[in-house]
Amino acid sequence: MNSLGEWGVGLFTLLETVFPPIPSEIVLPLAGYLAQLGRLNMVLVVVLSTLGAYLGALLLYALGAALGLERSIRWLSRLPLVDREDFTKAADWFARHGRTAVFFGRLVPGIRSLISLPAGAERMPLLTFSVFTLAGSLLWNGLLIGLGALLGTQYELIDRYSEVLNYAVYAALAGVVVWLVVRRVRRLIRTRPDRAGRMP
């Protein structure tokens, strides 16, 4: 993040929106922390992270509009560490809450990255989608970046335990990956007997 700067934060949020296993809950507080130390521009971090989230959401919106919900889910669920259930959960959320799901969905882990897909498939007006997505993304990103900046005010304490902090971040990233892999393997094991039972 130090080498990529503010534009790197925007890239991270774009990727996090399109590829849900990338956790914004880790990336954005670190960006806020670096901004508090003066290594990044706080305003640019907020603006570019929100822009990145919007562009990623726009890609999924366009995919849903072009392919329809079912074909989009079938295509995207082939991605590593992404399950079909994640997409159907977002689609159910959109069906229950309608247009406001796009705003509030940006604040809900597991829904935030994928709510754009059913919005596109249902041909939600692009202007409405854009306004709700930008507002929700700004609120979420601003909150996480602000928390990271508050953490940065404890610079002396963090400097003293910086090595422990590094290990904590690595452990959190590894934990996310392990959880996603275990979840995918367990679901594959559960579906295998069903497939075997249908074989002639």
Rank of each mutant, 00 (worst) to 15 (best):
W93N: 00
A121F: 03
G110D: 05
S162P: 00
W140F: 09
L180C: 10
V181Y: 11
P193W: 14
A168M: 08
V46Q: 03
L144Q: 01
R192K: 15
W140I: 02
R99G: 11
L143D: 02
T128R: 15
L134A: 13
T13R: 04
S113R: 00
R71D: 15
R160Q: 15
L180K: 15
R74K: 15
A149I: 03
V176Y: 06
Y61R: 04
L127K: 11
Y170D: 09
M1G: 15
L4Q: 05
V47F: 11
G146R: 06
V185N: 05
E70D: 14
N166Y: 15
R112G: 04
T13W: 05
T17A: 14
G10Y: 07
L60R: 00
N41K: 09
I22H: 10
E156F: 06
A149V: 02
R112C: 08
A57I: 01
W179G: 00
W179R: 14
L138W: 13
L4S: 13
A196L: 13
L126G: 00
P20Y: 13
A171Q: 07
S162L: 12
M1Y: 11
L157V: 12
I115T: 07
G38K: 03
R84S: 15
A121M: 06
R190K: 12
R99V: 01
Y54F: 12
G197L: 14
P29R: 10
D83C: 02
G142I: 09
L150K: 05
L147N: 11
R71M: 07
T133K: 04
P21M: 12
I158A: 14
L188M: 14
G148M: 01
M199P: 00
A121H: 04
W140L: 05
L150D: 03
Q36S: 13
G10D: 10
A95K: 13
P118A: 06
Y161I: 13
V18H: 08
L107F: 04
I145T: 07
L107D: 02
G68E: 11
V45I: 00
M42C: 00
A62H: 04
R106P: 00
G105F: 08
L15G: 12
R71C: 04
S3E: 15
L151Y: 05
S24T: 14
F87E: 03
R160E: 15
I73P: 03
G52L: 04
D92T: 09
R74C: 00
L58S: 09
P118T: 05
A171C: 10
P23C: 14
A31K: 10
L173I: 12
V182K: 11
A35C: 09
S49A: 12
T17F: 09
L127E: 09
P118C: 02
L188G: 14
M124G: 06
V47E: 08
P23R: 08
T88H: 10
L144G: 02
Y161K: 12
V177L: 14
T17M: 11
